[in-house]
Amino acid sequence: MTRRTVPLIIGFLAGTIVLGKYFLPQNAFLDSLGTDVVNWRTIVAAFALGLGAVNLLGTHTMRIARKEKGWDASIVLLASLVTFTAIGLFKGTTSPVYQWGFNYLYQPIYSGISSLLAFMITSASYRSFRFKDWQSGVLMLGAVIVMLGQVGIGELLFRGLPAVSSWIMAVPNTAGMRGIAIGGALGAIALSLRVILGLERGYLGGGQ
């Protein structure tokens, strides 16, 4: 009972305070409460980061202890976690050694993984853009015009391409995006209302 009731009450109070702060006329008490709720949210998020690190530590220590598949990679992970945490704590995140780690280890690895996107976009475009019917034809034509219109070579191929590309982005695209964004925002309001009123309990594991 309490396991569910307490989070529902917290959700209701936090939601109504923030809504009240926004809609009601300026009120020092409500303003300060609203600010506190927003501050708590950032504090909880910061704690969650720590919790995430603890979870990583626990999961990978167990993996090493049980010598599960890939346990050697877990050693590398734990060593990196401990080393960077120690440097950050004792030398500070603005120290040259921390920055070196960021610039020459973390950034290249992360950027490298992310650069896979270029390859994925190429193969996905090749696979997906097929002239199956007039709708997919319009989609494909739009994509081709925008892709070429965004870069210099498009202008070399056809002078008017950048203008057509800009028109596609500014008119049909904006119209479509507005529709989806308004629908999405309404959905988010509906879900938030359900959470505030305690009707939405999926995040508590479901139930009535």
Partner: peptide
């Protein structure tokens, strides 16, 4: 990280 505990509970 915020979602981890909730997801586990769900």
């Amino acid at each position: 990280p915020e979602a981890h505990t909730i997801a586990t509970e769900v």
